[in-house]
Amino acid sequence: MSDFKQLSRSVKGLTVLITGAASGMGRATARVFAAEGAKVAVTDFDADGARAVAEEIAAAGGAARAWRLDVGDAGDIATIVSAIADHFGGLDIVINNAGVSVRAAIDDPAYDDGWTRGLAVLLSAHQRIIRAVLPHLRRSTCPRIVNIASTEALGATALHSAYSAAKAGVTGLTRSLAVELGRDGITVNCICPGPITTAMTARIPDQQKQVYARRRTALGRYGDPEEVAHMTLSLCLPAASFLTGAVIPVDGGLMARNA
C-alpha cells in the first residue's frame, strides 16, 4: 500500500488573471482568490470598476492590481497579459469569465452584429487569452485554466442562439485543450453557471426570477456569485491536479430537474 499523499489546498502566492472581474461572478472570484492569499490581476473593460475591486482587495489586506482589458481586442490581450506577467513575475491561473449578453431573433436584421460580437467576447477571447498565457503556465508549478460558460451551453432559451452557440463552443474548447495541454500538466476545466444574481439578471423582475427558480431549480432559488467563485477556486487548487476536461454545472440543480 502506498503512503498517503498530503496534497495542498492553498493558492497562496499564486498569480491569477481574471477577466470580467469588475462585477458579478468575476468580482466575487477576485475577492475569493485574494482572501486565500493569491495575487490577483483584476481585468475588465470597465477600468474604474476593475480599479474599485482591486482597491477593495487591498483594503482587506490582499494583493491585487487592475488593468483595463477589452477581451474582444487581440492586440489588447497580448499587451495586458505581458504587463501582468511582468508585474507579478509570472502567471499560474487564468479564469476566462468576461461575458456579454446577446439576445436576438434569428431573423432580426441586427442578428449578425450580435453574433459577431458574442463570439468575439464569449469564445474567441478565451482561446486568445489562453494562447497568450500559455508560455507562463508552462513555467508554473500549478497551471490552471477555468473557462466560464453557462447552462445555455447544455440547454437553450429562445432568442439566445448566438449566446448558446458561443457557450457550447467554450465547452468544446475546454475539452479539446484539456487533452492537448495535459502533457504539460495544465488542467483545463469549465463551469456552467445557471441562474445567478448578477448585473446581467438584474433587469429581470424579482417575482419572475422567484417563479422561474422555484419551477426550474432543485434548490428553488437563484445562486450567488460567491457560490460560483468557490467552485472556480476548487478547480484551481494544487490538489485538483487530476481533474481536467470537466464541464461542471453550478446551477442549483437546474440541469438535473425534469419537472
Rank of each mutant, 00 (worst) to 15 (best):
Q6E: 10
G26A: 03
P135K: 08
Q127E: 12
Q6R: 14
G49K: 05
D206M: 07
D3E: 11
S2C: 03
D86F: 04
C236W: 08
V71R: 12
C236E: 05
D206I: 07
A104D: 12
V42N: 02
A63K: 11
A58V: 07
S10M: 06
R31K: 12
H126G: 01
D46N: 15
N147H: 12
C142S: 11
S10L: 02
A34L: 08
F88R: 07
D251A: 00
R117M: 11
R131M: 09
C142P: 01
K5R: 13
R144E: 02
R221D: 02
K39E: 13
A149Y: 06
T79D: 14
D184K: 02
A85R: 06
G99K: 09
T198I: 06
D224V: 01
S101K: 13
R31N: 03
R214P: 02
P225N: 10
Q208N: 07
R183I: 03
A54V: 01
N147G: 04
S10A: 14
V32G: 03
V42F: 07
E36P: 00
A166H: 09
S8I: 00
R27K: 14
P225Q: 09
R128G: 07
D3V: 06
A153F: 12
A218T: 00
R175A: 01
L7K: 15
A162Q: 10
G26Y: 12
A28S: 14
I106A: 15
P193W: 13
A41E: 03
R203D: 14
R68E: 15
A34V: 04
